[in-house]
Design a protein around this nucleic acid. Structure first.
Lengths: 261, 261
DNA sequence: CAGAGGTGGTTTATTATTCGAACCGACGGT
DNA sequence: ACCGTCGGTTCGAATAATAAACCACCTCTG
């Protein structure tokens, strides 16, 4: 693996639940030698991506990330545009909603919104790369990608995240066909055992699938009425978001989503 | 220079005015070999920091920067807290306001706000590292740092950005003493020839200087009345922001700022 | 108080990784 | 057909990253 990748993996160790990390722990978590770690962090620090703070000289993300994000938003205002739609979707469903985009062959979560309705909710804080085979967003997106990418993805290993994860390529292929026919995907505990989620694909200006929009609930709250509300919310929000991002719904999807509303 | 630094410098080439860059141009701008550039961008892309888009396969900042920024804000909500204060400061002065923080020995701009009052305004979009000797923020901060850091900074080269930049260490040292005595700094075209700016230092919880707050105007609008408004605005906003960030004003500064209001 | 085990940071020779020049095929205008 | 550019690739040479040992310091604990 390249040096840069190692440095970036160090960055990915920072999460909501672990926002500051000392040098030794960083080395331990990343399986990178402490000296190497030290140098890499030094370089990251010189560019403001991380900073050291406090007497323990622990590292945390630095101010430069704000600049980069502001720049990205100024040029591709996806997140800002998505936020209100996402919050409304969380509100009407009473569940956690999140949106992800396809980038470099990976599906990345870029924003999420929680509902205040229940004491229990699905926490998305520290998820960033969504596996195609184990999440509803992933399957929704994969099902609407071209056959070649789909086949390529099916050839990769399909690690089981839970006992409900679909790990058989043939069965997964069948499920994808099904999803494409319906216009939405469902995952019953394939990512986290207790999490049930539904997702719809999102499309760019040339009608190619570019991301996914999902609602995730604790399994216990899933009923047929709940599912109806979630699906109709997803269809509406999916249509709105696709439009906001300057995309266009393929007519086939448009029809299927009309039926959900 | 380390490989990681090279990669991060590539990231810094993306600006508001140049948000998408092709491989060849990237190599040209960065003085990095095209092959190297390609590999580095590939690694950045694998982590979502950049993505390729369109038929020309141009690069732009990717969705992962959003995640990092959201993480930083969740843990250190500086920018979000600063934004309203900054906007109010821009409003009352009618000029561009910006705030910067000290990180890893550099002063980095983390947010700015424009006023709608005038047709001409100072544009801060693509500034991110502020030189200590050539900006009012830089001098305000440096003047309130400990003597050792100050001396170290004075020993470094002081490149002239304009004909008005202070490049003589001795004269700069004298100016810094002056600034510390007044509690604010002034830069008359030291960074951009036509830009006149005032700045105040900001302080952390132990009373150490941790950043700067500045108002920048076109030179032509500077009058004594204008200066009075700007300084009183800076004093008020500086006090507010220091408090918001959980810092405490040194009593000496507090006195001086009272006189400005 | 001594020492064990933790911290952040530094140094070393060894080695694996990165580098850059040249090259490739594709595209778009002369 | 030529030219210039594009994104991307190759390969030997050379640079830069590596891991382990070491330091100074701190805080527990026996």
């Amino acid at each position: 693996m390249g040096t840069v990748s190692k440095a970036l993996e160090l960055l990915d160790l920072f999460t909501r639940s672990r926002p500051q990390i000392g040098l030794s722990e960083l080395a331990r978590l990343s399986d990178v030698n402490k000296a190497t770690c030290f140098r890499l962090m030094g370089e990251l620090q010189n560019h403001g991506l991380v900073e050291q703070v406090g007497a323990a000289r622990e590292y945390r993300l630095g101010p430069a990330v704000l600049r980069l994000a502001a720049l990205r938003e100024a040029h591709v205002p996806m997140r800002d545009a998505a936020m209100p739609v996402l919050q409304e979707l969380a509100r009407v469903t009473g569940e956690t909603a999140h949106v992800s985009v396809l980038s470099g062959g990976q599906l990345r979560s870029i924003a999420h919104a929680y509902s205040g309705d229940f004491g229990t909710k699905v926490i998305m804080d520290d998820v960033h790369v969504l596996p195609f085979h184990a999440t509803s967003s992933g399957m929704a997106v994969l099902a609407h990608l071209d056959a070649a990418t789909q086949a390529a993805e099916l050839k990769k290993p399909l690690p089981a995240r839970t006992s409900n994860t679909e790990t058989d390529p043939a069965r997964l292929a069948k499920r994808l066909k099904d999803i494409a026919a319906r216009g939405y995907a469902e995952s019953a505990g394939g990512y986290e055992a207790e999490v049930h989620s539904f997702a719809v694909p999102l499309f760019d200006s040339v009608g190619a699938c570019s991301g996914g929009l999902a609602v995730a609930s604790p399994r216990s709250r899933v009923t047929s009425e709940h599912t109806r509300v979630v699906l109709s919310g997803l269809a509406r929000a999916g249509r709105e978001l696709t439009e906001l991002w300057g995309g266009s719904l393929p007519p086939a999807i448009d029809d299927k989503w009309r039926a959900l509303a």
